[in-house]
Design a protein around this nucleic acid. Structure first.
Length: 287
DNA sequence: CTCAGCTCCTGCGGGC
DNA sequence: TGCCCGCAGGAGCTGA
């Protein structure tokens, strides 16, 4: 699934296509994604100008101009397999027919200058909602989120405070979006390796120096992943349809049996299951 | 309140 | 070749 770096990459790819444009037509091809789409969804978007394209955690935020109706924001989550593609999923295979509808193309946005953005989501764990911009922080998807890991509110002290009293493995604590927003299974594994912390370590027991190292590792991992355009394993594509390439820089994710990449470490990458999800780590240099 | 486990959905790769 | 199983980047819900 797209985690923060993938969503940020999609956002950057969509800015030149959507920002400042008017949505001239919106086609909704089914009533629901993970949950029902808002009432009169397409109708409420049509004719409105996209004033800004933002991101909060793994959510894309399309700000739509008011004043009538008041400014609203389209909140979009890509779930596990969601893509927002310039043109459409069918464009690559059927370039002679740019209007083709592909399997799992659920929503299509067309702009006043003739561009098209298609939301495609095979597993349909994605979601969209429309909400007053002024009240965005109160939306149920956003209200409980922890700090943005690349923003000013995320630092060693904040992470330490969020982990205090948590009697759960650090892996689970970092997947919990209330601790820090935007991490998923890949980047938690990668950041823990970079920080030299075992995914099994109880969150509450990690000392301040190691928490500081972890906060730094989270930032560095995400920045490197964004610089690479995210990670393409199965479903994820950038908005232009190209692949990200951070998967070639994975230290541990999906690399069970490989030698640990830490310089001087003779360990081997192992795989365990924690709360139903794979954790990849080196038992020798991650403690 | 916290936490582990299950759930939604589709597609793909491996093993037989 | 074909079928079955396990697994996949998320996160809401349930029940202990």
């Amino acid at each position: 699934m797209p985690e923060l770096p993938e969503v940020e990459t999609v956002r950057r790819g969509l800015v030149p296509v959507l920002e400042g444009r008017v949505l001239s037509r919106v086609i909704q091809r089914r009533p629901d994604l993970r949950w029902p789409l808002p009432d009169r969804f397409a109708e409420r978007l049509t004719g409105r100008r996209v004033s800004a394209l933002r991101r909060r955690s793994k959510y894309l935020l399309l700000d739509l101009d008011g004043p009538a109706p008041a400014p609203e924001t389209l909140i979009a989550h890509l779930g596990m397999s969601g893509r927002l593609l310039i043109g459409g999923a069918a464009l690559g295979a059927f370039a002679h027919n740019a209007g083709a509808v592909g399997a799992h193309d659920h929503v299509v946005f067309e702009t006043d200058d003739g561009a098209r953005v298609t939301f495609n989501d095979a597993r349909r764990f994605g979601a969209m909602d429309l909400w007053p911009t002024a009240d965005l922080a109160a939306h149920r998807w956003l209200a409980g989120l922890g700090p943005e890991p690349l923003g000013p509110d995320f630092h060693a002290q904040a992470l330490g405070a969020a982990l205090a009293g948590r009697r759960t493995p650090i892996k689970a604590a970092l997947l919990d979006q209330r601790t820090v927003a935007g991490l998923g299974n890949i980047y938690v594994c990668e950041a823990l390796h970079r920080a030299g912390i075992s995914p099994r370590r109880i969150a509450d027991g990690i000392g301040p120096a190691r928490v500081a190292r972890l906060a730094q590792a989270i930032r560095e991992t995400l920045e490197a992943a964004i610089a690479a355009g995210g990670s393409s394993l199965r479903d994820y594509r950038r908005a232009d349809g190209e692949l990200g390439y951070f998967q070639h820089e994975f230290r541990v994710y999906g690399r069970a049996g490989a030698p640990c990449p830490t310089p001087g470490c003779a360990g081997e990458v192992g795989r365990i299951v924690q709360s139903g999800r794979s954790s990849f780590y080196c038992g020798r240099c991650q403690r």
